[in-house]
């Protein structure tokens, strides 16, 4: 099968790979580049576990072709902590006991980050709406919602 080149920035680092045409961004990240923080739960765009941020937009990497991401800036949960210091969302998820099996967590954090980047002080309804594409089958939604609200509060305190 013909290989196509793809090049993008992942969590601040330049990445370049030759991939099979038609490879999803999820497979490119996990199998070629080795960032396994996005998870494959359904491979059909319904569970949200593969969520990543492409040029500031929340994207389902299992439905995104890697070759459409040429030149893009991609963020994943694996690159969120800076200098060994957890991002406020990661800290909030820890403190609120917002993880159980953990499989949905990286996707949840990506969805929450896009929300807080745009709406630093969201209402509870806005948090619920932002997480509505991410399934937690352990059904720990309430601690997750509380974690996002708590991260938003700590951000606003830092700004003030």
């Amino acid at each position: 099968m013909a290989k196509v080149p793809v090049q993008f920035t992942l969590n601040g680092s330049e990445k370049a790979e030759f991939i099979d045409s038609g490879t999803t961004l999820l497979h490119a990240l996990r199998d070629k580049i080795g960032d396994t923080s996005p998870k494959g739960g359904c491979h059909q765009g319904t569970c949200g576990a593969c969520s990543v941020i492409v040029d500031g937009e929340l994207r389902l990497s299992c439905l995104t072709l890697a070759e459409t991401c040429n030149g893009a800036v991609i963020r994943t949960t694996a690159g969120l902590a800076e200098g060994g210091v957890l991002h406020p969302l990661q800290r909030a998820f820890l403190d609120a006991f917002a993880t159980q099996c953990g499989f949905c967590t990286p996707g949840m954090i990506m969805a929450a980050k896009v929300l807080l980047d745009r709406t630093p002080s969201p209402s509870r309804e806005e948090v619920v709406e932002a997480l509505s594409g991410n399934i937690c089958r352990c059904t720990g939604y309430e601690p997750i919602i509380q974690a996002v609200l708590s991260a938003a509060r700590s951000n606003s305190q830092n700004v003030a």
Binding site: R30, D31, T36, K39, L86, Q90, F93, T99
Partner: peptide
């Protein structure tokens, strides 16, 4: 009393190794 879960730091940083993360 809240006690930190030992597996949570791996979950929030994407470092927890599920079987499918082995390649």
């Amino acid at each position: 009393q809240p006690r930190p879960r030992l597996d949570s730091p791996g979950h929030v940083t994407g470092k927890t190794a599920y079987f499918a993360d082995r390649n």
